[in-house]
């Protein structure tokens, strides 16, 4: 609603000076322009980024169980259509995303993180990292993510992924770009969790801890 007030005021000022000279026709055109402009701009804003509704928050992670379901809300369907995304159906798997670490700070490409823990039961899972916009052309593509088969585990079955700009021992996941915010995506394939995402517990998901930042 802040955008409406911000946009409305200069328009209103202009319209008020115009009002002394124009008639009802001017007001009619003003109302039409306001409606069309605000309506299109807000619809574009709401469907441009991620899914606006339907997320189930568990710790740092947000699950999107209904993104590909028949009962998906119109905004989710519009986002999928605009991006050409083929969402995972309920029987196929579950998508979880994370943009914050365990302390609520945005995941930044300049910092190092440890993504540690276990995942909910699934036949296979992949954990990928991405930044906004196209990949820098000069940077070599080292690794975008890990699959459940590739990952090196501790003796008790837990895993630790080192998400860092510099080379790390163990499961090193390089930062996709030099700076800016990045996001993680955890996809669980063929999982019973998809049908009951509301009961997801944060202890069942890997924890994202910040281990240090570049000065």
């Amino acid at each position: 609603m802040a955008t409406i007030a911000g946009r409305g005021r200069p328009l209103a000022e202009r319209a008020r000076s115009l009002l002394r000279r124009t008639s009802n026709v001017g007001l009619f055109v003003y109302a039409l322009a306001l409606g069309a402009g605000l309506g299109l701009a807000s619809a574009d804003y709401a469907t441009r980024g991620g899914y606006p509704f339907g997320g189930v928050v568990a710790g740092s992670w947000t699950a999107w169980p209904r993104a590909g379901a028949v009962g998906a809300d119109p905004y989710t369907r519009a986002v999928n259509a605009r991006r050409g995304e083929i969402p995972l159906g309920v029987g196929e798997g579950l998508l979880l995303t994370a943009s914050q670490d365990a302390d609520g700070r945005a995941i930044d490409a300049g910092c190092s993180y440890a993504v540690a823990g276990t995942t909910p039961p699934a036949r296979a899972w992949t954990l990928t990292v991405a930044g906004r916009g196209p990949r820098p052309a000069d940077a070599p593509l080292l690794r975008e993510g890990f699959t459940s088969t590739e990952i090196l585990r501790e003796a008790d079955g837990h895993f630790v992924i080192a998400l860092a700009p510099e080379v790390q021992p163990g499961n090193w996941l390089p930062m996709p770009r030099a700076s800016g915010p990045v996001r993680l995506a955890l996809r669980l394939y063929d999982t019973p969790v998809a049908a009951s995402a509301g009961t997801l517990d944060r202890s069942a998901l890997p924890e994202i801890r910040r281990t240090g930042c570049r000065p």
Partner: peptide, 19 residues
Amino acid sequence: LATACGLVLAGLVHIVVVL
């Protein structure tokens, strides 16, 4: 009145566009 009409219209346009 014109502003109020414009806002209502904006809501309608928003819904129609998203759908």
